[in-house]
């Protein structure tokens, strides 16, 4: 692999056609294997930044490079997990998970093998033939993550994937996501508005503020892995959360 960072964001700004400025002056380099949490209140442009990182829209100012290239290279698929599970209701769970591979030209048998492996990894092995509506909210999100992981992505982008879940399910999925990330070794960018979730998961928390959306802090979280409930209960965890909380509040006050 080249020495170029996975993602190099250089002075990126984004203004919608309506004139609303969502982001301004964001610079960020994300190295191979990092788990970066983009943390901020609603309206800080974190979801917009993620869709720019996914190449779904082009920034109106600045530039983004993927592995040193100006466009996402087709040979390096990345996974994307949406806020909602976003499964195709007319397809069984396995068919949903197969989709990224089939769209990229895999034959069905190969895709099905990979899909079953991905489903097993997220604990949905028995639900391959179920319909999405038969799954609970948390299980749908697992299926959605299986779909994002099926092509063995080098980069996984997640947009508040667990925000709609109850706290028990969210903590559990956070634990497992941390596990999957260490197992598979992809680079992750995780958008969230939960300070606890960011500090729990990330090797690095990028704190953003709103109006206009910008980066106000970039903090390394040095706690060792594997992380589990013990990390969530530790004093260091609480101190980090309190520190970030203070920074977010101060930025909000300055803006007001």
């Amino acid at each position: 692999m080249s020495a170029a960072p996975v993602l190099a964001v250089d002075a990126v700004g984004h203004t919608f056609p309506s004139g609303t400025t969502a982001l301004t002056g964001v610079s960020l380099a994300i190295a191979d294997g990092e788990f970066v949490a983009l943390l901020g209140p609603s309206g800080c442009g974190k979801t917009t930044l993620l869709s720019l990182l996914a190449g779904l829209a082009a920034p109106t100012a600045g530039s983004i490079a993927w592995w040193g290239e100006p466009l996402p290279p087709p040979g390096r698929p990345f996974g994307y997990v949406f806020q909602a599970p976003t499964l195709m209701p007319w397809a069984r769970v396995a068919a949903n998970v197969r989709l990224p591979l089939e769209l990229r030209g895999s034959d069905r048998a190969t895709a099905q093998r990979a899909a079953l492996a991905a489903l097993a990894r997220v604990g949905l092995a028995e639900f391959a033939d179920a319909w999405p509506r038969e799954l609970s909210g948390g299980m749908r999100m697992r299926a959605s993550i299986a779909r994002a992981l099926v092509a063995s992505p080098l980069l996984l982008l997640l947009d508040e994937p667990f925000a709609a879940l109850d706290e028990f399910a969210r903590n559990r999925l956070d634990d497992e996501l941390s596990h999957w990330w260490r197992d598979a070794g992809f680079t992750a960018v995780f958008v969230t508005h939960s300070i606890q979730e960011a500090v729990f998961l990330a090797t690095r928390v990028v704190v953003m503020a709103a109006r206009p959306g910008r980066v106000i802090a970039d903090l390394a979280i040095d706690a060792p892995f594997p992380r589990g409930p013990a990390w969530r209960a530790s004093p260091a965890f609480a101190t980090l959360c309190a520190d970030i909380s203070r920074r977010v509040a101060a930025a909000a006050e300055r803006a007001a």
Partner: peptide, 19 residues
């Protein structure tokens, strides 16, 4: 969301229509 998913996976126009 599904439209974005198809775009991210570089679906062709035909794939997007039929699937």
């Amino acid at each position: 969301g599904l439209r974005d998913l198809f775009r991210l996976n570089r679906a062709t126009r035909w794939q997007t229509l039929t699937r």
